[in-house]
Design a protein around this nucleic acid. Sequence first.
DNA 1: CTCCAGGTAG
DNA 2: CTACCCGGAG
Length: 220
Amino acid sequence: MEVKKEKIEFFQDKILEWYEENGRHFPWRNKSATNYEKIISEVLLQRTRAETVANFFPKFIKKYPSWKKLGEATKEELQETLKPTGLYKQRGTRLYKLAQEMKERKGRFPVKRDRVEEMPMMGQYNANAYELFILKKPSPLLDVNMARVLERFFGERKLADIRYDPYLQELSQEVVENPQSKEINWGILDFGSLVCEAKSPLCEKCLLSEQCIYFDKLSK
DNA sequence: CTCCAGGTAG
DNA sequence: CTACCCGGAG
């Protein structure tokens, strides 16, 4: 499925416009956020609502402000701390592994994307986030949220799993290919959470509806 | 009840 | 490729 360039530009413009007015604010989006904080936020955000993480994040950073401090925690201690966020056993075990790996690496996180993806807890999504936020390179935060927005507007994927769908992979990359890649990414996630909701999207107040496939189907 | 800024074992 | 993790918010 070939998507027209003009449609992508329309989408980018509208999302950026919407984001300026309605974008959400989170601790890990602050300019002052350290690389450690950025990486930890992505770990906590896995399969967990951003608002939930926003409540929890400051407490976690206060308790474990650095890789060094995190490396001193036991696996059980991390699991206990992570309980309010859900997925705490898995996440605790994996975060422990990541912290220990960082200890061995003397606190140095890998630089190249491929190496990042080899780290514990760092999958495709997190490697993209790393590229976007730390290497400052356009890269899509393609989660269920972004996938839903893109599919409704541009057309549905073929494969069940986002992570193996070449159509969504390529489309998302094109969409965030822009000098303001970070803002477009955040814009899409916020837009997906606040307007293009999973259950009942607010199509009446959506500034994308004139070119949206999902909306077009609705009005038939 | 469903859904959530995914990773990974099998 | 799927199935599973999990508490919490809506």
